[in-house]
Design a protein around this nucleic acid. Sequence first.
DNA 1: AAAGCGCCCTGAAGGC
DNA 2: TGCCTTCAGGGCGCTT
Length: 271
Amino acid sequence: MPELPEVETTRAGLEPHVVGRRVKQVIVRQPQLRWPVSPALAESLPSQVISDIHRRAKYLLFDAGNGHICIHLGMSGRLRVVPTDTPPTKHDHVDIALENNQTVRFNDARRFGSVFWISGDVTEFPLLASLGPEPLSDDFDGAWLHARSRGRRAPIKNFIMDSHVVVGVGNIYASEALHAAGIHPKRAAGRISARRYDRLAAAIKRVLDDAIIAGGTTLRDYIGVDGDTGYFQLSLAVYGKAGHACPRDGEPIRRVVIGQRSTFYCPRCQT
DNA sequence: AAAGCGCCCTGAAGGC
DNA sequence: TGCCTTCAGGGCGCTT
């Protein structure tokens, strides 16, 4: 369930532990993740220095000089920094051991996550090549959503969760942003005005930004401590709150399934 | 091109 | 208490 804010907080938490460090060894205990872990990872990475950690969508990209480590957390993936001699526990699938006797450890119970080795240009890597803009960048705004949505009959909730439209809007924050913008999640994307898209784009930015700030302040050092992020139980207005009063008008929040995903909305203030 | 759905996997929750 | 079933969920990729 890591959403973009959790991924960004993981990136920020890893950065001081990893950047500038040389990789000593890579251990792959379970290569069968969402995609198989390529042997090239363990072959190419040792002796390289990690110079940077970027995030693109929900992918973490570690610049290793001769290539990039690319990690997606799926829905149950966790990255922790532990002393290298820490015995692995259940679902500890990949270790990246550093020369300072610390190890970046990837744990993923459900194995929806992935660990890639990208030897070439990351922007040409198939999974990254056709992604939409970052939601927090200036490339993403209401005008972009409006332009991209013309003729689209899919529900707006599916539309904003389409990574080719905009990346990083997961199931939780899609519901939250639509509530904040007062838009019904089932409304056809092509039937929403430019003005409402301005509000929606702003809501997406605000919701994600608030969560990143909250995560950064409350969980600043979690990676070095025990690695358990928990989930950011932020001030969610609608997600998971079926039957609770809408914070805006008191109407009971409803749950509905859209695109095989739980969706929460207020039937009164979201139109 | 767009939309819908299957699938990968495990743990938690619910039913009996 | 314990077994069995159901379901959630990110996101690719196949099908329609």
